[in-house]
Design a protein around this nucleic acid. Structure first.
Lengths: 343, 343
DNA sequence: CTGAAAGCGCTTACAG
DNA sequence: CTGAAAGCGCTTACAG
């Protein structure tokens, strides 16, 4: 059995209260007791039982995060940044993967709440269906929505980026590169991010006087990008630029085109969204909308800490700025010298 | 304040013991009490306090994992698989990022042990320096080393792949593609994986009668691959094939070459290790050693469960098989028709 | 400065 | 079937 505070106190010949004070560094303890207790604790290999401490104090230093998919490089980076921010405040990160499924998300959120974590970060799986559980949990403990938000969330805190502005950035960029016809290949209305980027695309296209082809909509997956590229190549006319909903789709598109001997940016321009490592790795490199991951984590953690301290201070929505990260995928305007192969 | 079992019991007019039994589903409870208590609990929005439960039972359903860097796609996938495996057993995953630094690793491991997690998965940051803490912790609770191991770990459990065989697979592959001169670009002796892959390269080269150029050794980073490509291009003679220590380095190499107008596989063949999504995304796609991530998680979790149940059953080392995943980066033998540009 | 005691929320023998 | 009680390990008023 593990050694408890009781064991240390007995071995040191002091009360359990004194032992606690000596180890915890709180309350008055004589220099002698302090040393004695600490030595004894070391000798016995004592380690505080966080469970007991937490029960007594109401909560332990654990914060939970629910993401749709850790294996998505964007969320992997985000988790990394959160872990970093939290560890500076001596908090631990409990990670839960919802797989983008409502059932799992609900189950995970309830489990975190049961565990009496100090707070929760959540990237909602759905814009509307995630709402009930999230608002319910938020009434019970500090909660911050990250990256995505749910419908009618004026009472909930949110930290993410300005997706509309981000899409505007790439749209203006391809416009400046000479693109006239564009197409959006992104995700559906299931998530706030899907909605916002899709809508911003439509708005931006109008403002710039571009011609938009019929969009292709599905999930944030590399495989989807791949198949979308094939669909596009089957169309009568290839657009000048493809605006992808995220980097996974964008790199999928890029691979899809290149594998069919098309040139990017020679035949078509492609842009992504997120600014993950994927944008560096593909060839050509991907022009993308860079999300400030570290900043998102920093602000989200700050918001959560504020809720923990002030208890009640919720409802603020923070939209961080994205930046255009130029890569080779939009390096020059498409020059359709060679008629593209039809397949 | 959150509603406690006490509240539910009072509201239902039963003892706290009966309430506990009714909710927990253990022990004899009358049908009537059962229904009454459950209804009351629902009405009050009761949710068991895992902390109290855990203190009573000695541990909660949390398992910790310490990885060097969640943002590395390989570890992101691994974490994803672990979360999946664990959630089926109703266990939660506490994630800790060591950044590959000893201090952080020690601190994280101690914290997990303090928290009385059910067990720990750890990817050791160092082959030798990580040993003391890991063996110490392993004496106190179930622990399984994953992917990497520490020195003299016959008492420790380990689950990973057969790195020697994996390197052998790519080496034979490039040999069959006609490569004569090869070079290893990988990581140092700091980790077991670095050691094993490096050593396997040397052994394999001898067996196949290949000529090895001086290796380039550093960390598992995309940026390192990038700079290694530049170093290689500065050499008098470019090797026929570059065997990279992992996919990050491999894609870095690939980008490095391609950005300098070299052709892969036209001028040089490249192979990776891990089988992450990166191998799909780069262009050409990367030939790599596929690690069975799901299987690793499955076996590692099974090993941990066994330790939890049998208490003491440690020391087994499981080496899973890797498979060769062929991509475009080794599609054909280099044909040096064009003298390569010197820069 | 130090100790005895209460209590965080829960589960489970132990009686009845 | 049900309740009173003990106890998991800890911290912190409360006395002294």
């Amino acid at each position: 059995m593990a050694v408890s505070l009781r064991d240390v106190a007995d071995a040191a010949g002091v009360s359990i209260a004194t032992a606690s004070r000596a180890l915890g560094g709180k309350g008055r303890v004589s220099e002698a007791s302090m040393r004695l207790v600490r030595e004894t604790a070391d000798r016995l290999g004592y380690r505080v039982n966080t469970l007991g401490k937490a029960l007594r104090e109401g909560s332990d230093g654990v914060v939970g995060i629910v993401v749709p998919m850790v294996s998505n490089p964007f969320y992997a980076s985000l988790v990394h940044e959160f872990e970093d921010q939290l560890s500076r405040r001596n908090l631990k990160l409990l990670i839960a993967d919802s797989h983008g499924e409502l059932d799992r998300e609900v189950e995970r959120l309830e489990a975190l709440a049961s565990r009496r974590v100090r707070g929760i970060f959540v990237v909602p799986a759905y814009f509307d269906r995630s709402r009930p559980t999230i608002t319910k949990i938020a009434r019970q403990l500090p909660l911050v929505q990250v990256d995505r938000r749910v419908k009618d969330d004026s009472t909930l805190t949110f930290v993410g980026v300005d997706n509309a502005d981000g899409i505007g950035q790439v749209l203006r960029h391809v416009f400046e590169q000479g693109a006239k016809t564009v197409v959006f290949v992104g995700a559906d209305n299931r998530t706030s991010v899907g909605r916002e980027r899709k809508k911003a695309f439509t708005t931006g296209v109008e403002e710039l006087g571009l011609v938009a082809q019929r969009p292709i909509i599905d999930r944030y997956l590399f495989e989807f990008g791949l198949s979308a590229a094939n669909q596009l190549m089957r169309r009568a006319e290839l657009p000048d630029a493809v605006i992808a909903g995220d980097d996974l789709i964008a790199t999928g598109l890029l691979s899809g085109f290149v594998r069919r001997e098309m040139s990017v940016p020679g035949d078509v321009l492609i842009t992504g969204f997120d600014g993950t490592i994927l944008a560096d790795i593909c060839n050509p490199t991907l022009t993308t909308v860079q999300q400030p991951m570290a900043k998102i984590a920093e602000v989200a953690v700050a918001q959560l800490m504020q809720q923990i301290d002030d208890a009640g201070e919720t409802g603020s929505h923070v939209r961080l700025r994205t930046t255009l990260r130029e890569g080779g995928s939009t390096a020059r305007l498409p020059t359709r010298t060679v008629p593209r192969s039809t397949t």
